[in-house]
């Protein structure tokens, strides 16, 4: 399976390493033509304004939108989740509007407030998932057809799936736990 990882800016190398560990062919994507022949796309963590700007400048945004609307599985983490959302509470950045969720950027505060927390994720089994939240966003609202995969202790929504789109407010690529990457590969090959 060939998975592209958007490499405009951010922690793309970490995602590529995780996907390769799982036996997928992972390739960086910086230009529209590099979207050809992909079975899935990861939009990594990074600075969402920066990624969004580079996606627009190099004509990736429309192409990604088009491919995702015709069924390309997309996995967004942190900045990636913001970019997947229909609505972002901040004026910046312009999102792709693919998933029926509203997000709030930097929802927990500044870096001082970045945190780690264990998450219960029923679709991944009983073992908690190590959540790494860095200047993280949260999901404020989700449409009925969106499946919420994880919440913080206070009920805050931090992981969601809608069809072949998967969005996390945290960073599985910074942990040794490969289950979310495997879950995405399963979505991409139609097993889930």
């Amino acid at each position: 399976m060939r998975i592209g990882v958007l490499a405009s800016q951010g922690a793309f190398a970490e995602h590529i390493a995780k996907l390769r560990q799982l036996g997928a062919e992972a390739v960086p994507v910086r230009l529209p033509e590099e979207l050809e022949g992909l079975d899935g796309l990861v939009i990594p963590g990074g600075e969402s304004t920066s990624i969004s700007r580079l996606m627009r400048d190099f004509h990736l945004a429309d192409k990604i939108k088009e491919r995702a609307q015709s069924g390309l599985p997309v996995f967004g983490t942190c900045a990636g989740m913001i970019l997947l959302a229909k609505k972002n509470s901040d004026a910046y950045p312009e999102t792709l509007g693919l998933m029926d969720i509203s997000v709030r950027r930097n929802a927990f505060g500044r870096q001082r407030e970045s945190f780690e927390a264990e998450l219960s994720v029923p679709v991944l089994g009983e073992k908690p998932f190590p959540g790494v939240f860095i200047r993280a966003p949260l999901i404020e609202k989700a449409d009925g057809k969106v499946e919420i995969l994880a919440r913080l202790g206070d009920g805050t929504m931090v992981a969601a799936r809608e069809g072949r789109l998967l969005a996390l407010a945290f960073h599985p690529e910074l942990t040794d736990d490969l289950r979310f990457h495997q879950y995405f590969l399963d979505i991409a090959c139609g097993k889930r």
């Binding site: 490499a7 405009s8 800016q9 951010g10 922690a11 793309f12 190398a13 970490e14 963590g45 990074g46 600075e47 920066s50 942190c78 900045a79 870096q111 970045s114 790494v132 860095i134 200047r135 960073h171 910074l174």
Partner: peptide, 9 residues
Amino acid sequence: GLAQMLKGG
């Protein structure tokens, strides 16, 4: 981790 998010920038 925050530094990793700044990479390529």
